[in-house]
Simulated assay, not measured.
Amino acid sequence: MSTSPHEADLRTNVAEHVHTPERTRPIAEAAARMAGLDPQGVVLIRHQTNGVYRLTSAPVVIKVAPPGEDHLGEVVALVSWLQDHAVPTVALWGDPAYQPLEIGGRAVTLWHYLPQERPVHAADVAEPLLALHDAPLPPFPLPPLDAFGEIQNSIASSPLLTDQDRSMLRDLSAQLAHDEPLQASGSAPGLIHGDAQHRNTLLDPAGGAVLSDWDSAVIAPREWDLATIEVHCRRFNHPPEEYEEFCRRYGRDIREWSGYEWLRDVRELRMITTNARKSPPGSPAAAEVRRRLDSLRKGETSIWNIL
């Protein structure tokens, strides 16, 4: 029997909202034991798309994916390939052939922990991102970017949105999709990170930077990654000179591209709708999503709080 789009949306929503630290911590501890590591004192680093934990007994980070995520094998293969092609990336811990682990219906990956002695700046992202964009296509398939499909799924499955919200967001998505052929073409589709930004970049002990969190890697024009950096710098109120330094190191300012404003709006809509899907009702994250929606409805340009 086929599953209707509405049923699929509901299943996605239910899966994400049972993805809590109470459920993922025991899985992270079990993964540590399976890898021969001491799970005592596991520390939660972040819990949004993945439950991310750090061991205190070894320099290891454990990432627990939400239910239904079945692409972690591709992520492991991609990271191994990136290392072979000198793209700066955080390394998997142990033998990649044994990852991902499958525990309690969740995919789990283990990574080297890199202690961070200062905040990441936009300029730190430039060199590893340029190395990624200059890399050839990998010899295995990766999905193409489907920005509008993801936006529509998030609108349909969010527990936060009112009927008026959904109508506004669908109208905006339809208008942006209609305008897409009017935009100047960007670079040829290639391998992109998909969510290149400060929190998905880590400083390594040698003083350089590496990219992390490869779950969103797709085949698409590199402008998507460049717009992501610009949106994060502007919306999250990073000093303008930090973005200018990113542009100098990367060698390009996306704002000079004729399709910039259109892609900026698509990227921001994707961020709003994704967070609307992931944020539990009544949470601080849900309140931030509501604030962004109110600003969007009023046509205001506001600073966002990072989620």
Results as ranks from 00 to 15, higher is better:
228 T>C: 07
272 I>N: 01
293 L>P: 11
210 V>S: 10
204 D>L: 07
160 L>N: 04
22 E>G: 13
211 L>K: 04
219 I>F: 09
104 G>H: 07
127 E>G: 02
135 A>I: 13
136 P>S: 10
180 E>D: 12
100 P>M: 03
291 R>Q: 08
199 R>N: 13
55 L>I: 07
95 D>T: 10
46 R>A: 14
84 D>Y: 02
185 S>G: 14
62 I>Q: 01
250 Y>E: 07
133 H>A: 11
101 L>C: 02
145 L>F: 06
5 P>G: 04
194 G>D: 07
26 P>T: 04
152 Q>I: 00
22 E>H: 08
145 L>C: 11
177 A>M: 14
90 V>H: 03
72 L>G: 04
208 G>S: 13
187 S>V: 04
40 Q>S: 15
176 L>D: 07
78 L>Y: 11
150 E>V: 12
297 R>G: 04
127 E>M: 10
201 T>A: 03
65 A>Y: 11
68 G>D: 05
147 A>K: 09
169 L>W: 00
127 E>D: 15
232 H>N: 09
297 R>N: 07
34 M>I: 13
36 G>Q: 02
260 Y>S: 04
148 F>Q: 02
70 D>W: 03
83 Q>P: 00
8 A>V: 06
44 L>K: 12
290 R>N: 03
271 M>A: 14
125 V>C: 08
227 A>W: 04
126 A>S: 06
273 T>K: 01
95 D>H: 00
68 G>A: 10
99 Q>K: 08
195 D>W: 05
299 G>L: 09
271 M>C: 08
